[in-house]
Amino acid sequence: MTEHGEQREVFLGRVRAALGHTQTIVPDEPPAVDEALVRLATHDDDLITMFCDRAASVGMHVDRITADELVDQIVAKLVELDAKWIVVGFDSLDQADALNNAIEAADIQIVNWLAGGATMDVQFDTDVGVTDVHAALAETGSLICNVDAKHSRGLSLIPPVHIAIVGARQILPDMLDYFATQHDATGIALPSSQAIISGPSKTADIEGQLVTGVHGPGKVFVYVVEDV
């Protein structure tokens, strides 16, 4: 579909001409990515500690907990934050039902966005988004939040506070390891949206002074469940 633009062939023709090609030449392999240079963490590292340290150093609040503590810890945090209205997306957790029940027992209202109740518009009014993650990176202390049928684009982005639950086994050493999982899945489309998140939203545009929470969440709490 072209609106007013050029036809694909005309456009590509100019590129080929600049390259001195009469037709598209398929190159041999692209440059090999030398892991000795690029890799910044391996499976031999203490991934949980590395993840926690680096996530903390980019400004996220990190706690290491056990699966038994999870429900109490999350509810305590929500109470501490004085959350009234939250959105959740942690379907993959074993404790999902227990957590939902405990949150509601604490008089915090969960907006059920899976049932269509929390459109993006509604998410702007919520206090907290609580999510699981698809993976985490030790190298940079990053959370990876992807979109699928059970995960909204908004939960880790729109509410002013994001609480993320990370299973220890989800922590991958390096970005290369995460991208490799996608490499194997040739033929299977990537998620429409993948967010690699490393810290709270921040800016230093006004005289170089660091301010957090400019558009996205100003606070990110990460619970690393060590025995999951």
């Binding site: 980019v58 990537l190 429409s192 690699i196």
Partner: peptide, 15 residues
């Protein structure tokens, strides 16, 4: 800084 806070990889519109 090691990485920007948000790296958003977008592959097509909403499914």
């Amino acid at each position: 800084q090691p990485i920007t806070v948000y790296n958003h990889i977008m592959t097509g519109p909403k499914r």
